[in-house]
Amino acid sequence: MTTALALPAVHRRHVPVLVTFGLFVLAFATGALRYENFGTAQVFADLFIDNAFLLVVAIGMTFVILSGGIDLSVGSVVALSGMLCAVGTSRLGLPGPLVILVVLLVGTLFGAAMGYVIHVFEIQPFIATLAGMFLARGLCFTISEKQISIENGFFDTVALNRVALPGGVRVSAGAIIALVTFAAAVYVLHWTRTGRNVYAIGGGEQSALFMGLPVARTKIQVYAISGFCSALGGVLFAFYTLSGDGLHAVGMELDAIAAVVIGGTMLTGGSGYVVGTLLGVLVLGVIKTMLTFEGTLSSWWTRIAISVLLFAFIALQRLVGIRRRARSSPSASSPAPASPSPTS
């Protein structure tokens, strides 16, 4: 049956991730050739340090996009979480770990609430999370119009200490937390039923219902996971900046979505890998680092480069999608099968 000797075939669905990997290697190599001190292990490690929060947020976004949804609230939830960290430690004087725990809980519940509205009332994810975005951002400013700095021993310790790795490379706690989150996400998506249900729903919600999968639970879980990741990202952002501010992480949802898409995940759901998201974040990180090294080039090129990549990947997905559909169904216009309209 199986050709045991053959090399593992490159599946079509792995192609986008490989493209992203190639892109990253190319970008990093270019940087290493062009700039002194670029091709070092520390620069590589810095990619994780400087983008830890984005990685965590993008991982949450990956779950949502895989399920066929979208979460526009992540940037605001990052800001709100940072704000809550600042208020909890500096104003209320609570212990750091407790504050973090509460923040993570709030984020998770916030996401779950959006998931509930999306599933139960059949509101487009885009709109429901848009409301969530307004709400979280508005709550930030309700708490404080101004930046609040975090003065807390625990936060200082975690933020300022670096863990030394062999070879003299030093990484922050934030980077380690991000990598642990990444490993957890890989495990959940690949080796648990919940993870597989996320893929199934992204492949076709009707089909998932027909196959008896817990669609409602999974959809709410997905947004709860994204809420949790955003809150965790907010905590990491607080470590990074040691402050809370309602204007933090404006537009981070776009970076997160871009990272996920550049990582090869289909925006229509059902296809993609967290490792792609990791690579996507690294690609964005390398672009930013290169612009820093360049010095004369300016930050807006990052955005332009991101959007060009975004366009390239979306167009690629679209072309692959068209070809696949043309192949698998001769009558593309045939109506949908008996839809069980679960609500009626």
């Binding site: 597989r196 249900n197 893929y199 199934a200 492949g203 027909f210 196959m211 059902g270 296809s271």
Partner: peptide
């Protein structure tokens, strides 16, 4: 119109859930 998930593998479609 088959009510399975086209994005999952053949094996997984048989066993998902």
């Amino acid at each position: 119109e088959v009510n399975l998930c086209p994005n999952l593998s053949v094996a997984e479609n048989i066993f998902i859930g």
